[in-house]
């Protein structure tokens, strides 16, 4: 179960000369629901961009299994990234296409399936995310939550082994966010995919996260890693605790904070 799926080795990320995060070093295991957390602006989404091949790290590397993502040439990188699917924060559906066309896009581009078969696959993916019958709708005609689920259907089009989520529950009501969490978990269970989530939504972090890293803005590196519940129970770092207890740790008494934290859960 615990074979490494994605390893980040000694990676430093920067925009120009401005360093976002340095010396990141962690491994994401197959079948994990891995949470990347941290305060707004600490570089969570930037880290995601580096993992999915949109930004080149300043130093260090990302490994898919044994293969390096950034040492590879363009073609190999495309091949590695073919096994990933990404759900962007706002769904990022192409607004000039219907849902069916959006989901079919990667299928028509990367497989040689016939139109009839693609249509069936699209219907299946949309049904998986609870959007059966919405094939011929345009993204603008759907609510935010539905757009996000349609984005998930597109991310899953090619049966990826790794699914990345950028703030999946941002902008959703608590019930929809919970449903999306459940969906993510059952997809992991049934598809056997590895899930990487960037989020600061505490409820989701504790509900579905099996492992996590915490990125800190001031020291510009990761200051904690482990299963989220274990971090809450055992971490002694005030920054991590303040985050995981919604700032309830302003008082210095750590055990009191932990009690508050448990109550929140």
């Amino acid at each position: 179960m615990s074979s490494p799926c994605l390893s980040i080795k000694n990676m430093t990320m920067a925009y120009g000369n401005f360093i976002i995060q340095r010396d990141l070093d962690f491994t994401i295991n197959r079948g994990d629901i891995f949470v990347i957390m941290g305060a707004s602006g600490c570089g969570k989404s930037t880290l995601l961009m580096h993992l999915i091949g949109l930004h080149r790290p300043m130093s260090g590397d990302v490994f898919y299994g044994e293969e390096s993502l950034w040492q590879a040439d363009y073609k190999d990188r495309q091949r590695l990234l073919r096994q990933t699917g990404v759900l962007f924060q706002s769904g990022a559906l192409l607004s000039s296409m219907t849902l069916a066309e959006n989901v079919a896009l990667p299928l028509t581009e990367h497989t040689r399936l016939g139109a009839q078969r693609i249509r069936q696959l699209v219907s299946y993916k949309l049904a998986l995310v609870g959007l059966a019958g919405f094939e011929d709708y345009y993204p603008a005609e759907l609510s935010g939550g539905m757009q996000k689920r349609a984005g998930l259907a597109r991310a899953m089009a090619l049966d990826p082994k790794i699914l990345f989520f950028d703030e999946p529950s941002a902008g959703l009501d608590p019930v929809s966010a919970k449903l999306l969490d459940d969906l993510i978990r059952s997809l992991r269970d049934h598809l056997g995919a590895t899930i990487v989530i960037v989020t600061h939504e505490l409820a989701s972090i504790f509900a579905i996260g099996t492992y996590s890293v915490f990125l800190d803005m001031e020291t510009k590196t990761m200051i904690a890693s482990g299963p989220p519940k274990q971090l809450l129970a055992e971490s002694r770092d005030p920054k991590v605790l303040r985050f995981l207890t919604r700032g309830a740790s302003e008082s210095s008494n750590i055990s009191a904070i932990k009690r508050q934290g448990q109550e929140i859960l």
């Binding site: 299946y124 049904a127 998986l128 609870g130 959007l131 059966a132 019958g133 919405f134 094939e135 011929d136 709708y137 969906l183 059952s186 997809l187 269970d189 049934h190 598809l191 056997g192």
Partner: peptide, 22 residues
């Protein structure tokens, strides 16, 4: 296999709403 059963469950979890299809 349990994975397939689970996925079939997900597919039928939200039945298509009447009148939604165009």
């Amino acid at each position: 296999p349990s994975g397939i059963q689970g996925l079939l469950g997900l597919v039928s979890a939200v039945p298509e709403r009447a009148g939604v299809r165009r």
